[in-house]
Simulated scan of single mutants.
Amino acid sequence: MYQKYIAVIGALLCGVAVSRAVEDKMVLQPGPEGVDKWFGSYYNKQGVNNGILRVGGWGDYYNSLIKFDGATQTVPGSFKRAELWLYHFNTTRPTDINMWLLKTRWSEAPWDHANLAGYYLGRYYGPSIGSGWYGIDITSSVNYWRLAPSLNYGLLLTPAANDNRYDEFYSSDSSSVTLRPKLHVIYDLDFKMPLPGGKAWKLTVEAGGKANDGIDDPFHKGTTYYSLDFSPWSVQASGIGPMYPETDAPVLAMEGGKVYFVGNDPGHPNGYHVKIDHGCDNDTSSGFQTVYSHFKSPPLVTKGQIVIQGQKLGIMGNTGISTATHLHVTAYFQGTASGEGTDPQLNQLSIEGRLIKDYKLNSLSPSTPIFYPSSNVIK
């Protein structure tokens, strides 16, 4: 019992670093439920919904309509920009594209586009000759829809020329599933410590596996991840006063996202644990994910649940392959491995403004505790 009254003598407190955000994205790529079609000014005036989108013409004009219902959904971090991606095919004589932000409703039903009106956004260079992905920055449009979701009527794409020039793209009804239109919503993530703020928490294993007991842990650095271990011992964020062993320390979401896995088996190597995708797009093959392991009891969230930064996920514990109460937290970035055996994006990931790879033990005396402050707020 006397331990909780030991003053922080010989311990080191790392101060708060400058905030550094990292970029992630949510990818929306609807299937047949997507809303898009093309129509002509003379032929096919009623509208065509046949797996392609056409922009161009030869005497008449072919125009395309597209709308992403998910464009206004909440993103985990701070919205940054948005990009429309269309896959063009067999392009031989491309045309530049004029784009309009629509202010009137339409649907895929025949003729339900007769009274279109909108705001002109500008002229964009057309796709290159051949086939491939064609991107347009639509940040201003998505930002407008996010401010007024009820006004999301989509976009109109019209040709800048109709002298036998055509751009053809796959639509959301295409049988080429991976080539359907995509909306990339890009945002900044600002990760916080996975433990309550107002305190600084004792690091016991750093990224790379160096532990304060002198025994290296091999599960702390891989080609797509870094891991850290924190014990239940904490001090006041100011560094003044005693250090305490916390009882039932809450484990918090480091940033907003979508729960894509909940481990309810205490016998699993990770014990009770939670996995969060910070892309919120059901695609864990790209972007950032975080994993929180060894909870004391079953997690407090469910698979598919959207969580916000600071949301309580569970209680620090000792389930799974674990020898003492602690939190094992892992940050993943799925992509092309390079650099120091990890992705460049992962090497840029910071927690509380400090790069995750810079969460270090005392290099001169690993047994001397180092505490890292948190500003995360329990939600």
Score class of each variant (00 low, 15 high):
Lys4Val: 15
Leu13Pro: 00
Ala21Lys: 08
Gln29Leu: 05
Pro32Arg: 08
Leu65Thr: 03
Ile66Phe: 11
Ile66Met: 11
Ser78Trp: 07
Arg81Asn: 13
Leu84Tyr: 02
Pro94Arg: 04
Asp96Trp: 00
Ile97Glu: 01
Leu102His: 08
Arg105Thr: 14
Ser107Ala: 11
Ser107Asn: 12
Ala117Glu: 12
Ala117Lys: 07
Tyr120Asp: 12
Gly126Pro: 04
Ile129Asn: 15
Gly130Gln: 14
Thr139Pro: 05
Ser141Arg: 04
Ser141Ile: 07
Val142Asn: 00
Trp145Thr: 03
Asn152Ala: 13
Asn152Ile: 07
Asp163Gly: 10
Asp167Trp: 03
Ser175His: 00
Thr178Val: 05
Arg180Thr: 00
Val185Gly: 03
Val185Trp: 02
Ile186Met: 13
Asp188Leu: 07
Pro194Lys: 01
Pro194Phe: 03
Leu195Cys: 12
Ala200Lys: 04
Val205His: 00
Val205Leu: 06
Asn212Gln: 09
Asp213Phe: 09
Lys221Glu: 05
Phe230Cys: 10
Gly241Lys: 11
Gly241Asn: 13
Tyr244Ile: 15
Pro245Leu: 14
Ala249Tyr: 03
Pro250Leu: 11
Val259Lys: 06
Val262Met: 07
Cys280Leu: 10
Cys280Asp: 09
Ser285Leu: 11
Gly287Ser: 05
Phe295Asn: 00
Val301Ala: 09
Thr302Gly: 13
Lys303Val: 09
Gly304Val: 13
Gln305Cys: 12
Gln305His: 13
Ile308Pro: 04
Ile308Tyr: 15
Ile308Cys: 14
Gln309Leu: 14
Gly310Val: 03
Thr325Ala: 08
Ala331Pro: 01
Ala337Tyr: 06
Gln348Tyr: 10
Lys360Arg: 15
Leu364Asp: 14
Ser367Gln: 15
Ser375Pro: 04
